Simulated scan of single mutants.
Amino acid sequence: MIQVQHEDFQVDDLYKGLLKANKTGAVAMFVGLVRHFSTLPKENCRFELEHYPGMTERNLQVIVDEANARWPLLDVCVVHRVGCLAVDDQIVFVGVSAAHRAEAFQACDFIMDYLKSRAAFWKKETQGSDSHWVDAKVDDEKSLERWSK
Rank of each mutant, 00 (worst) to 15 (best):
M1Q: 08
V4S: 05
V4K: 03
V4F: 02
Q5D: 02
F9Y: 12
F9T: 09
F9E: 08
Q10S: 11
Q10W: 00
V11G: 00
D13C: 01
D13Q: 13
Y15A: 02
K16Y: 00
L18K: 02
L18I: 01
A21E: 14
K23L: 13
T24G: 08
A26G: 04
F30A: 06
L33P: 00
R35M: 08
R35D: 07
H36M: 03
F37M: 12
F37E: 13
F37Q: 11
T39M: 03
L40R: 11
K42S: 14
E43G: 01
E43W: 00
N44Q: 15
N44E: 15
R46V: 00
E48H: 11
E50V: 05
E50Q: 14
Y52W: 11
P53I: 10
P53Q: 10
G54N: 06
E57I: 01
R58E: 14
N59H: 15
L60F: 01
L60Q: 04
I63Q: 03
A67C: 07
A67K: 05
N68K: 15
W71S: 04
V76T: 14
V76N: 02
C77S: 14
V78L: 12
V79E: 01
H80G: 07
V82M: 04
G83F: 09
C84I: 13
L85P: 10
A86S: 14
D88R: 12
D89F: 06
I91C: 05
I91F: 06
V92S: 03
V92W: 02
V92T: 13
F93H: 10
S97R: 07
R101Y: 03
E103D: 15
F105G: 01
A107F: 04
C108W: 02
D109F: 01
F110L: 10
M112V: 15
D113W: 04
Y114A: 07
Y114R: 14
R118F: 03
A119M: 03
A120M: 10
F121H: 05
F121L: 12
W122V: 10
K123E: 12
K124F: 00
E125T: 06
E125A: 06
T126V: 15
G128Y: 07
G128L: 09
V138W: 06
D139N: 08
D140T: 14
E141D: 12
E145H: 09
W147M: 08
